[in-house]
Amino acid sequence: MDLKDKVAIVTGAASGLGNATARRLSGLGARLALVDLQAAGMSALAQETGALALACDVADGAASEAAFARILSERGSPHLLVNCAGIAPGARIVEKEGPGSLGEFERIVRVNLTGTYNWLRLAAAAMVENAPDDEGQRGVIINTASVAAYEGQIGQTAYAAAKGGVASLTLPAARELARHGIRVAAIAPGLFGTPMVEAMTQEVQDRVFEVIPFPKRPGRPDEFARMVLSIVANPMINGSVLRLDAGLRMQAR
């Protein structure tokens, strides 16, 4: 799909994977709409690219519908959605004082899974009305899963459950939207140089990076962005979750 002058929405655009993706899409001439709770993080990118920046909780139905309405009004119908918004705090099943927090589990699932589905449904409903391109495509939706969906570590039950949900919805969503010419795929990144990973202690980072086969380093956000462009460019990628992890298989801790 040629993205020049097409509307592309990136959630989680204030930093990390979403920010790098938005920059790559801007370079292709896409008309950007940036979505994130952190308005300050989007301001520089919005000024550089002329993007529409919207501060929004991606899991809030009413707020997201209002933000999406602004995108339709000020930019038009999207041809691409890249869902990068997410959080990754630790949440144990049993804490020192007793059972782990149900509220924290719900918060992590709400942002990572419900937020992804929320923007998928809004984008898909708008894409249905797009004119098809030469391949019959009306849109592409790319979600962000994680290797934790497959090899979640101790303390990642909530995060792994949420990202497992993102991975699991990929194929049925692609099947449902196929008749409209809308592709759905997901990327499952390993350890990338994002605020989530940088929040780990140096000891934890060193231990984790040691088990990465090659290259033995964290991924660069721009490498995630390049995978997004590969999915967009290749119409045969549909219904799949693509690991981007340098061969990493996460250990228990």
Rank of each mutant, 00 (worst) to 15 (best):
T157K: 05
A158L: 06
A160L: 04
A162Q: 05
K163T: 02
G164E: 09
G164D: 03
G164Y: 01
G165Y: 06
G165M: 00
G165S: 08
A167N: 02
S168D: 08
S168E: 00
S168I: 06
L169R: 07
L169P: 00
L169Y: 04
T170Y: 04
T170M: 01
L171I: 05
A173N: 00
A173Q: 10
A174E: 11
A174C: 14
R175Q: 15
E176M: 07
E176V: 11
E176W: 04
L177M: 07
L177A: 02
A178W: 05
A178E: 14
A178R: 12
R179L: 05
H180C: 01
H180A: 12
H180Q: 12
I182Q: 13
I182T: 13
R183S: 10
R183V: 03
V184S: 08
V184H: 14
V184P: 11
I187T: 11
P189G: 03
G190W: 08
F192L: 14
G193A: 15
V197S: 10
M200K: 01
T201R: 05
Q202D: 15
E203A: 11
V204G: 07
Q205A: 11
D206T: 14
D206F: 11
R207E: 15
V208P: 00
F209A: 04
E210Q: 15
E210G: 06
E210I: 01
